[in-house]
Amino acid sequence: MIEVVSAARCIACDICVKACPANVFDGGPGKVPVIARQQDCQTCFLCEIYCPADALFVHPNAEAPTGIAEAEITARGLFGSYARALGWKRGKAAGAENDPTFELRAFL
């Protein structure tokens, strides 16, 4: 589930507050959003790709928070890794034209 909002990276745009389908964050003008309803997180990773500053980290454990530290996420280069894999940049959609899933579907 959602674990970290990096205050160092966040530009306080409130996009995640709006875009999270589970309404997990509480925001406010000029403030770094807080994770207000962590248990509601559906571990969909979508806030990460909507964030223009790669400031969010979602841990794949969907059952409970793990308490992973921001330093580890930074050290392992995990901020923004899902957006990069998709080709999304600074919160903007891109890269669907390079999706090779159709090659895989030929095997089904």
């Binding site: 794949p60 890794s81 899902y82 894999a85 999706d99 090779p100 899933t101 095997f107």
Partner: peptide, 20 residues
């Protein structure tokens, strides 16, 4: 080849593995 397509086409499937 399949590995490459899977990784690029289904990147969220690999988040658990890459993140642990």
């Amino acid at each position: 080849e399949i590995q490459d397509w899977l990784r690029r086409g289904q990147p969220n499937c690999f988040l658990p593995f890459d993140r642990i």
